[in-house]
Design a protein around this nucleic acid. Structure first.
Length: 399
RNA sequence: GGUGAGAUAGUCAAGUGGCCAACGACGGCAGACUGUAAAUCUGCUCCCUAUGGGUUCAGAGGUUCGACUCCUCUUCUCACCA
């Protein structure tokens, strides 16, 4: 039992510091029923979660399954400083109102994965505000500047003459102090958080709270391109709030290699089940597409519902496998005869008439499933289904 | 504060008087192939009903028949020194 728990906890992790301690925690849970705490900090800056964020949430859910109470820490105090991690410039500071708004949407999304009854939401403003100048000084005296500058992003910024605000030095300290206050047994975070996570361990020792948290780091999830990390700004993300059809299509569009990575980090299947799937694909008894579909359905089900997941699959098959027209497509209407290129622009499926002409020339444009060859074509009154490439559809009614 | 270098399309990056709507790479879109993809091959990638026209190379002026390329100023970035 403990062995299995450890295996699932280790799954997909990039690095674990003090795995023995995790094992001990599990032992005391299974033998004496003693719960333990897993801390994970969330920065209330990004209200739109994507699957990259859920990797951590799912690891927390795994811990819950094996007896942990999750301390869902909202960094409302630290957000006013701005986490310098991975940033090459000083970050702008959030307003109180923004933070409150972000937290609300954050937690509703998070509880699609986490067990609410085993989660405690804590705000570090509650204790950090009370720390006061004395406490702050005491905290700051635990660390030297040289040690601080060891941090990769700080040393790079320092070396390249990019400004570092002194308050940014305090961020790791405060995050570490959270662990002192909460007496956390384990803290998890992304690999980019290593310095901050270890700070918690160190401070727990300095403040002599009789325990040192284990640290588990999760890798950064690759985006749809399979290379760069999933992020909104790179537009390679699958949003937790994406519509079922989009979500399904996006998962299905990843490469076969990347699929295993997603299985490891995002699926709730056990490692043995995943190995079985892998073997099946390797010996040809399972089709990779089927395996990928199963993953898509699992993910859509998690964030929407099983029904919607199967509908999304049906819809996808209809459009792509049988190349039929999707069920829901945007409709437009226009009052007079219109030139095809202009019509495509009007329907928002082409950015400009120039682009529309090029696509017509290449045979990418279809009307009612028929390829358009004449770029001068005029659409007289009637109803048309316009299509550009495989994905973009619009219904147009000409009066 | 001083000195030097630079600012070119989504990004990187060529071009140093006409051959420039601007090489190339990446990204993106499309076509073929497929399993939906990935890989591969091909085409396209400023706008405009177009064998033509318009607006672009940080901004404002100037030189010239002609400027992304030369000159002046402005703004901003970067490097080195203090």
């Amino acid at each position: 039992m403990i062995e299995e728990a450890l295996k699932e906890i280790n799954r997909g992790s990039a690095e674990i510091i003090d795995n023995e301690r995790i094992e001990k925690l599990l032992q005391s849970y299974y033998k004496e029923g003693k719960s333990y705490t897993v801390k994970c900090g969330f920065d209330p800056t990004a209200p739109d979660l994507h699957l990259g964020h859920t990797v951590l949430l799912q690891k927390l859910a795994t811990f819950q399954k094996y007896g942990a109470t999750v301390l869902f820490l909202i960094g409302d105090f630290t957000a006013t400083i701005g986490d310098p991690t991975g940033k090459s410039t000083t970050r702008k500071v959030l307003s109180k109102e923004d933070i409150v708004k972000n937290i609300a949407s954050y937690t509703t999304q998070a509880f699609k994965i986490l067990d609410e009854s085993k989660t405690e939401i804590v705000y570090n403003n509650d204790w950090l505000e009370k720390l006061g100048a004395n406490g702050m000084l005491e905290l700051a005296s635990t660390l030297t500047v040289a040690r601080m500058l060891e941090r990769d992003d700080f040393s790079k910024r320092y070396a390249s003459n990019t400004p570092i605000a002194v308050s940014e030095f305090l961020y790791p300290l405060l995050q570490g102090y959270d662990s002192v206050h909460l007496l956390s047994d384990v803290e998890i975070g992304g690999t980019d958080q290593k310095f901050n996570l270890l700070m918690g361990r160190q401070l727990q020792k300095i403040y002599d709270v009789k325990k040192q948290q284990a640290v588990l780091m999760m890798p950064i999830l690759e985006g749809l391109d399979g290379v760069q990390k999933m992020s909104k700004s790179l537009n390679n993300y699958i949003g937790v709030a994406d519509a079922p059809n989009d979500m399904f299509g996006k998962v299905l569009s990843i490469s076969d290699d990347l699929m295993w990575r997603y299985y490891e980090l995002l699926s709730t299947k056990t490692l043995d089940e995943i190995t079985a799937l892998k073997d099946g694909v390797a010996d040809g008894s399972l089709h990779p597409k089927k395996v990928k579909e199963a993953l898509s359905i699992e993910i859509v089900t998690r964030f929407h519902s099983e029904d919607e997941a199967f509908n999304a699959k049906a819809e996808f098959d209809k459009v792509h496998s049988k190349s039929q027209i999707p069920t829901d497509i945007p409709e437009f209407s226009i009052d007079e005869e219109i030139w095809i290129a202009k019509a495509l622009v009007e329907c928002n499926i082409e950015p400009s008439t120039s682009q529309a002409r090029r696509d017509i020339k290449q045979g990418a444009v279809k009307i009612n499933q028929e390829k358009v060859h004449d770029e001068q074509l005029q659409l007289s009154s009637g109803e048309y289904v316009l299509q550009v490439g495989k994905r973009k559809f619009a219904k147009l009614k000409v009066n």
